[in-house]
């Protein structure tokens, strides 16, 4: 009965190519950064290209789960932003497909092709750091922390908030940063000490910033651009980077495998990497370093002194982070998280 397959296929192609065919001129955008930023991106793309954008926003982990759940029938075309790890995992699992955008040449080198093979492209990057409630520390008579080691001092017991790496990409970046900075064995010892000081593990990555902002804790371990965001939003926190070096995230931009509107998705990716598009991020309290070399760095970030120039970063190995994910999470959950504080 092969003939019918062929006829079906021909009919399908004809209906696709024919006038009034099934393909609408839309692109389905799955966005993981700040909701307002995603909304603005959708509006701007519609205005710039006339292609209609249907979008939804969910955290990067949630989006990964959605894309995996939909893999039999992908609904989304392009996955915009969010921590790199889920993007990398998705690429490894074949949920997304490589696309070498012609804009890649314009990107900063470390974000050009973070895991090779154009599997995902760098949209932005941001170093990991702290949001510190200076007022609260002063009131308690505690010094400002300078290094990661300071955070593990008994002084800060019950004053630190950090996300749970089982549910948050930010917190996983923290684990990997420590393990890569200090080496595996020393790293695990340090994490056990840090654990004693943690007041609360939150589910979402940026939630510790709010806790610090509201004075529920004094120090939040979050991405520095989020620290800047909370400070700019009016919370009494200061963005601080660890003096002994820190890791960073790369926000991903991926083409979803089996995208129903693939051509539009590629157009979107090319468009999203232009300086004109990337420049609007700062208007929505998203202060990451954008990947295009020509995108200017927002003045606010320079004011807070937490741009890549002023932050000591380590050589963060994304491939290692991705490959060892299950092992590290299991060990952390069983050996560290389960201990009394």
């Amino acid at each position: 009965m092969n003939r019918w397959w062929w006829i079906g296929a021909v009919v399908l192609v004809l209906s696709l190519a024919g006038p009034g065919g099934a393909q609408e001129n839309v692109v389905v955008l799955y966005g993981s950064p700040d909701r307002d930023w995603v909304a603005a991106i959708a509006n701007k793309f519609e205005k710039d290209t006339g292609i209609k954008v249907q979008w939804i926003r969910a955290s990067s982990n949630e989006m990964y789960a959605r894309i995996e759940a939909e893999k039999a029938n992908p609904k989304g075309d392009v996955w915009f932003g969010g921590t790199g790890d889920p993007h990398f995992d998705a690429a490894e699992k074949g949920l997304t497909e490589p696309y070498c955008s012609p804009k890649m040449a314009e990107l900063r080198e470390f974000m050009r092709d973070p895991i090779g093979g154009c599997k995902t492209l760098g949209l932005y990057a941001g170093p990991l750091g702290w949001a510190v409630n200076e007022g609260l520390l002063k009131k308690l008579g505690k010094p400002m922390p300078q290094t990661w080691d300071d955070l593990a001092m008994p002084d800060y017991k019950g004053l630190i908030a950090i996300a749970n790496p089982n549910t948050s990409g930010t917190a996983y970046t923290t684990l990997v940063t420590i393990l890569q900075l200090k080496g595996e064995e020393k790293g695990w010892d340090y994490l056990a000490k840090l654990h004693k000081n943690v007041a609360q593990y939150t589910k979402s990555g940026s939630a510790p910033g709010q806790l610090a902002g509201r004075g529920e804790v004094a120090i939040a371990v979050i991405f520095l651009h989020d620290s800047v965001m909370f400070a700019e939003e009016g919370f009494p926190v200061k963005a601080l980077s660890p003096a002994d070096g820190t890791g960073y995230e790369i926000g991903g931009l991926s083409l979803i495998k089996g995208a129903p509107h693939k051509e539009n998705a590629k157009k979107f990716i090319d468009w999203a990497l232009t300086p004109e598009t990337q420049a609007i991020a700062k208007d929505f309290r998203s202060f990451q370093l954008q990947s295009n070399m020509k995108t200017p760095l927002p003045a606010v970030v320079i004011k807070h002194g937490v741009d890549f120039e002023h932050v000591k970063t380590i050589k963060y190995d994304f491939t290692w982070a991705s490959k060892n994910r299950d092992r590290i999470l299991k060990r952390w959950t069983e050996q560290i998280f389960s201990q009394a504080r």
Binding site: D34, I56, R57, A69, K75, S204, S206, G209, G213, F230
Partner: peptide, 22 residues
């Protein structure tokens, strides 16, 4: 929360997003 899609979004999901970001 699992069923909303790009074309069809609901208020409660928007509230969840906004509360998540503080």
């Amino acid at each position: 929360v699992f069923l909303v899609s790009a074309k069809w979004q609901l208020s409660t999901k928007v509230i969840l997003d906004q509360a998540e970001n503080g």
